[in-house]
Nucleic acid binder design. Structure first.
Lengths: 97, 97
DNA sequence: GGTATAATTAGACAAATGGCTAATTATCTA
DNA sequence: TAGATAATTAGCCATTTGTCTAATTATACC
């Protein structure tokens, strides 16, 4: 959980997650959206993977990344836990997460 | 928004938010829950304040901190935006946040 | 086998982060 | 005014973070 919050702290990584929102993408497809070297992107993928926010799958030379939505649920639950529930009546998703 | 995610990356700060969940507390009351020097705690309060996650109010010698729940709504909304909505049917709070 | 391509790992380095002690500010009370 | 208390700001230091280039691994194709 700690790793997930740390992973979300970086804007580049949040943008990666937003891209993967629409479906899986290869490392190269993701990287070409950024002005950052491939090794640096690879590092970001690793941080997201360590936090269990994304999964990797190799197909030939390429590696496809995709979101791990289950862990996302946990993060939202943890975030909700930080704030009073009565102040967020329309977001009372604790029982689901 | 970037500041809020960065602020949430630190476990000490998340614990501060959890404490404030139950209502406002003075800097001293919060600090005595931690094994960290007062200046370091003050630094954390500052980060949370810069991120607009908490507010400060002076009363005599003491400073009372409390949560800013509106900004919290924004953070949850931003978080939801990172992940596919159809995977989180019970958390579709976008229209509210 | 040899070469090209996709992506990673290794290692270096500047900037940011989180901790500390010492000093300062603000307020209260005798 | 002087002294005590609550909290902050200032400044220092070790660790972590995000970036890079160079080298390596894995696969594909000729």
């Amino acid at each position: 959980m700690d790793a997930a919050f740390k992973a979300l702290a970086d804007p580049t990584r949040r943008r990666v997650l937003r891209l993967l929102n629409r479906g899986e993408m290869t490392a190269g497809q993701i990287a070409e959206q950024f002005q950052i070297s491939a090794p640096s992107m690879s590092h970001h993928f690793n941080v997201l993977k360590q936090a269990d926010l994304i999964s990797a799958r190799r197909e030939g030379q390429q590696i496809f990344y995709s979101l791990n939505t289950t862990v996302f649920q946990d993060v939202v639950a943890a975030l909700l836990d930080l704030f009073p529930q009565e102040e967020a009546p329309s977001l009372q998703a604790r029982s689901d997460a």
